[in-house]
Nucleic acid binder design. Structure first.
Lengths: 207, 207
DNA sequence: CGCGAACTACCGAGTAGTAGGTCGGCAACG
DNA sequence: CGTTGCCGACCTACTACTCGGTAGTTCGCG
């Protein structure tokens, strides 16, 4: 019954309920941020969205579908801002400063940051449904960042742009983790800017 | 069920437990690494340790106590290696290079890294029993790293030693996350060394 | 030495509670 | 009158945890 859906995947997908679906997704997003995927129950999401649990399952076939929807929603919202986009993004517009702006913006919405941080870390556990998503996301993220870095200051010292990209993303995630644990002690935008200034330095033995 | 209890603990079943407790803790550590704290059931830990679930609860009063035991065990094992130690560590011996060695060592035991990464990220969710542990751990970690950094090259450029410490730890955690998602793409020791070389560079406008 | 109380380690069976998911049906609407 | 949105009741599986009991060991005491 709920298994086969090859033909009806295209046009009739959204029916007439995009509003309610979005409400549910927002509720799920908030709860995933607070308690993680495994720590969140469908009943809690349904309650937050103002309907019953079977009512929720009318919109999403299962919990994994909910998670998929949340991740997809996040992608739509945030993908445009960053160099995380598809391969054919205009390379000139993407830059590390642009990323720094996003980080500044993120400081005002810890819930979204927490959701992504929690889900990403959770996804490294075995059989986690978001694992593929994050593997792909990080790969693309690194590729985009490497491109941006290359455009901005080519090769510096011993660092390849791929290495710099991995480090940049690592700094971001690591700072966010510390910030989520101790919001008052960690100023993410400030620290990230400091890291960028490190990246822009010249190597000690060159020129 | 499927295990007929092959190595039934030699002959002497170590009166007064510590062996059995350690077995249980090791099983719990491994499972927390695989599935996280919330994703791990007491029954699964008990099964892995070769006893029943009530048998496990004979050694630990509850699941939180198990987690506490695991974290305590980790602290005992790893605290000595790092500058995470108490305030009165010999400052001369602590260094970033020493940290780099630990990172190299950690590359050979992804399970331990995964356990800490997963538990740390999980602990940012509300009401997580490990939260206090990680808040304290990171605060101490930063303090120790800041001291080591100060000793090694005082103040560099715009970076205070506290900022450098937060960045260093962030790089570590972030790299580990990427590595756990894509082990073949990320060389943590290599990237960390690259980051250290960034830290050691001179500021662009100085000297 | 022997014997039984005390203690440790453990298990079988069960507790209440919660999880994700199913089923049948009801109401509104185009 | 079928599609869409939703709910109450229910199901099964699993959760952490409890209870009562039973081996095996140690030790006090005669």
């Amino acid at each position: 019954m709920a298994e086969p859906d090859p033909p009806r995947a295209e046009q009739r997908r959204t029916w007439r309920s995009p509003d309610r679906r979005d409400e549910i997704l927002r509720a799920a997003f908030a709860l995933f941020a607070e308690r993680g995927y495994r720590g969140t129950s469908l009943a809690a999401v349904a309650d937050r969205a103002g309907l019953s649990q079977p009512g929720l399952l009318h919109h999403f076939p299962g919990k994994e579908a909910l998670l998929a929807g949340v991740l997809q929603m996040y992608e739509k919202i945030d993908a445009g801002r960053l160099f995380t986009g598809p391969t054919a993004t205009t390379a000139t517009e993407t830059s590390l400063d642009r990323l720094a702006e996003v980080i500044e913006y993120n400081a005002s919405r810890p819930d979204a940051v927490r959701a992504l941080a929690v889900l990403a870390a959770e996804s490294v556990t075995s059989d986690h449904p978001a694992r593929a998503f994050f593997v792909e996301r990080y790969a693309e993220f690194r590729k985009g960042a490497a491109r941006a870095l290359e455009a901005e200051f080519k090769r510096r010292g011993q660092l390849t742009s791929e290495q710099a990209a991995a480090l940049t993303i690592a700094v971001l995630d690591g700072l966010h983790l510390q910030w989520l644990l101790q919001p008052d002690e960690i100023d993410v935008p400030d620290l990230f800017t400091a890291f960028l200034s490190l990246l822009r330095q010249r190597p000690i033995d060159n020129n």
